[in-house]
Amino acid sequence: MAEAPAIELRGLARHFGERTALRDVSVLVPAGATLAVLGRNGAGKSTLLRILATLLRPHHGEVSVLGESLPKRAFAVRGRLGLLAHEPLLYRDLSGRENLRYHARLYRLDPARVEQLLEAVRMDSRADDPVRLLSRGMVQRLAICRAVLHDPEVLLLDEPRANLDPAATDLVEPLIGRAAGRTRVLTSHDPQAALAEADIALGLRDGRPAFLSPAAEVTPEQVRELYS
């Protein structure tokens, strides 16, 4: 028997007042697969990620993450998913280590996990500097540590490689790359790169799905049209 899908959306809609941010979004992401969400700025990518992260409640349709229906069972999936948002979600005046330790306490994790991750992204030497003094690439590496700190089953990645140089990209690969074996939903400013590491692609235009197909079958025309 096939494993239950990690993420299942049926007819999802979300409004902000009278403005429709998302409408009629239906997707099925099997466990361990990667969904790439493409679209221009304001197409609804971040809204979709925030709904999956339980930060926004859906207005219509069914949303199920890891077999739990949202928003009712949101508490059951929190702690099993990791969100790498646009903002790093780190306190600027605290150091990277202090930030991560705070999160480790929220998730009831061993502080040793913090050291392990800091080492993995080569941030251990700058870990005691306040975040506001770090470069964007370093902050992004810390943010990635924060997102995977609790070893989540589902990763929600909003432009995960923004501000990272090639060396840093290789460093974080084991954490957020396909090799990590987690179910992933990702957006990217680079549609080709996103398609290359995705199994399924969802194109959003003004909050409505423009296409939904296996990533390999998305044509350059479709992508061009989406961003035009």
């Binding site: 508490f75 903002e87 780190l90 005046d93 924060r146």
Partner: peptide
């Protein structure tokens, strides 16, 4: 203010607490 401007709300709400 720090929670709002530096993402503390989101970070807290993501945690299973």
């Amino acid at each position: 203010v720090t929670e709002r401007e530096q993402g503390g709300f989101d970070a807290f709400l993501l945690a299973p607490v």
